[in-house]
Amino acid sequence: MGRSNRSIDKERDGRSMRKGHGGIFSRAKRHLVQLFAALLYNLDFQGIATMSVGRAPSKGVCAPGLHCYSCPGAVAACPVGALQQALASASLPMGFYVGGTLLAFGALAGRTICGWACPFGFLQDMIDKVGRAMHLPEVRKDTWSRRLSWLKYFMLALVIAGPVVTLMTHDLGKPLFCSFVCPAGTLPGIALVAASPSLQSMVGVLFSWKVSLLLALIVAALFVYRPFCRFLCPLGALYGFFNRFCLLRYTVDTEACTNCGACVEACRMDVKQVGDRECIQCGACKSVCEFGAIRFSVGVRKRDASPAAPAASDNEANVKTGATPSHGDESKPPRTA
């Protein structure tokens, strides 16, 4: 079953080998950054040791990625949780505070946060590694996954509407996404319940539902790359809106690009163009680009196009001009359209 997939993997690896050590090195580097970020999110070692939820003042600040406030190791707040809390409390200052924080993270990094600084994304990357190591068949993106990826906008709607609607109907705003969906919160939830007999006597249907959902996502992550991020994450949906103009992102040099489509083909997210709303800026496309047209950019750049599909336009000319100088010419400004 897995044969055909592996042959694609080999081909992909072959391509990155042609590019030199860059691909493998940069991928390992990303995982190191992810690991470091996950540690930074969980610096409350005392909380982990005593299995208790800390009350440090730093919890008044949002971490950039999805990360449950109730995690014993957490030193900061989850932006999705804080957003729901701001809506539930209908407090204008808190709304501005959380909204401003989210705008700042979005404008700075967009979904670069998903690819590099989200502990739950890191967890799924590692589960994916296990799945590949076990030679499980991988289901790649296709029409089904592109359709399913719209579901995360529904989750974003739930994040916003949940507290507002419950506030109107019950006079008590509730974080419905946290309660019924968020698998990142289920992880510490299991740990806390396991550590506390008094919590064990309290768990009911909701606990069963959330643990089942987490298990289902973990199983899914063995076969499908990052299922939560692609189909369910409201934070990814929100940050995706910033992907086109945030400061840290991958950009395509349209002069060097030949529209060969290798980047979109190599990408395991539901990306149609490098850097679109689904892009988590992991850089896999960079290592497969034979023309050096993709690079990580810092700062404000003009919006540039990248190939949606192989196109047979003026490719020949682009190959000649783009392939050779691209490496040493990092500072070349993008073509003005």
Binding site: M1, G2, R3, S4, N5, S7, I8, E11, P137, E138, V139, R140, K141, D142, W144, S145, S208, V211, S212, L213, L215, A216, V219, A220, F223, V224, G261, A262, E265
Partner: peptide, 27 residues
């Protein structure tokens, strides 16, 4: 057996969806 780019290969997404649903219910 070279596989052309852009094709979903091997296992069908429906099978995975079924596996995930079974895990969800069983769990």
């Amino acid at each position: 057996n070279q596989i052309p780019h852009g094709k979903s290969t091997g296992i069908s997404p429906k099978i995975i969806l079924a596996i995930v649903a079974v895990v969800l219910v069983a769990a």
